[in-house]
Design a protein around this nucleic acid. Structure first.
Lengths: 223, 223
DNA sequence: CGATGTGAACGCGTTCACAGCG
DNA sequence: CGCTGTGAACGCGTTCACATCG
């Protein structure tokens, strides 16, 4: 089980998806699903579903499909969602505060236990039950334990420096919302959520869809 | 130039990255960059940079590299960032309001021109200079023009229905923040920003990194 | 039988290596 | 000579097809 096989990023993403779908159908009282059904709901293929799951074991019953409750449990274990994770939020700006009250985090076991900012007006104020601390205290608070993951919601210019401090303090997983490419310190997993980048991708597809010259698509574009 | 070649999603992402880096070094007065430099700053390889660019043309000077200003202009054109895009924001909750005041959007030419919500307390209030409208007016406002892209910041349960309405109203590009898999209506580009999913990916890597050892954390699992 | 689990085939994005041009 | 542009080789994730077992 603890094999050193490389799990692709997209596989992990799909596992999360499957778990979500399972939770949904479980709420409807469904007891069993086939790879076919999981695929349809999740926007992939049945073979893909089975391949993804087969990496971690054999959870299905041939001729039957997968037991919803059991598979959900397996996935939670695989993804590490059978525990609670302590999260530190860096940056109590609008985005940071929105994340602080984002329900899906707590629902899935991610508890924001510390919030940091540099704005004196915010320090020591309490948001969503968490006291905002001065950024200077970062190392001390993390050293006290209970923090597994850091969420970076700071201006782009400051992100790299703070990432370095986080790494030094022993944080090994960071979710970055700043629109910059960060150099990940060794041993630290960094993931990016870049909303502007996604919009640019949409912009691209809109422009491309309009290329191809003459009568490609008779879609009237406004403006 | 307007060839029907398929551009991979990751290529488009990297193009956005390159443009960002170019803007940064341009501000520092650098006139020329090599693919090598772009690669180092962007976390890829020089060959990758050249491949990405070669799809759209030959922008470099052999033995010299790329002219920063010129390449930035080309990329802006390719990505459709040489114009302004009208954006409709659906959902004026905390996340929606955070997005509304997110500076990177306006900086890159994405103007939020309409905000919708269902909460009577919010309707007709003005946030960041934009009046919040009732969701019922969605079709009418979009029909009036000036909206190219929609940003979905609504509860998961409502997202699919609103996506359908957006498609019906003629919107062809949607950025979804709701943590659900949406069925994209034909002709509509849907991109997802799923913050909980990213956290789960970090959770996975933390758990995996801990495997193979016997001194793992004695965390009690509930549920 | 029916749907899983999986080795083999496939397609595609990435990397390599070098020809080509300023 | 230096760095770009690009065909060829490579690796990897996805898809196919079928043997397997409840």
């Amino acid at each position: 089980v603890a094999d050193p096989k490389k799990i692709s990023d997209s596989t992990v993403r799909r596992l999360s998806h499957y778990l979500r779908l399972l939770s949904a159908v479980q709420a409807e009282g469904v007891a069993t699903v086939s790879s076919e059904e999981l695929a349809r709901w999740g926007g992939t293929t049945a073979a893909q579903v089975r391949k993804d799951l087969s990496v971690f074991g054999s959870f299905g019953k041939r001729g039957m499909g997968y037991d919803v409750v059991q598979l959900a449990g397996e996935l939670r274990g695989i993804l590490g969602l059978d525990r609670e994770w302590g999260v530190a939020l860096i940056g109590a700006g609008r985005l940071g505060l929105a994340l602080l009250s984002y329900p899906s985090f707590r629902e899935r076991g991610f508890h924001i236990r510390a919030v940091f900012d540099t704005d004196p007006a915010k320090i020591d104020s309490v948001r969503e039950g968490v006291r905002v601390r001065r950024l200077d205290d970062l190392e001390r608070v993390i050293a006290a334990g209970g923090i597994d993951i850091a969420v970076l919601a700071v201006p782009a210019a400051e992100a790299q420096a703070i990432l370095q401090r986080l790494a030094g303090a022993g944080v090994r997983a960071v979710l970055n919302f700043a629109p910059v490419t960060l150099e990940p310190p060794p041993g630290v997993q960094v993931r990016h959520v870049d909303m502007a980048l996604e919009l640019e991708g949409l912009s691209f597809s809109l422009v491309q869809g309009r290329l191809g010259g003459d009568d490609s698509r008779p879609v009237s574009s406004a403006r």
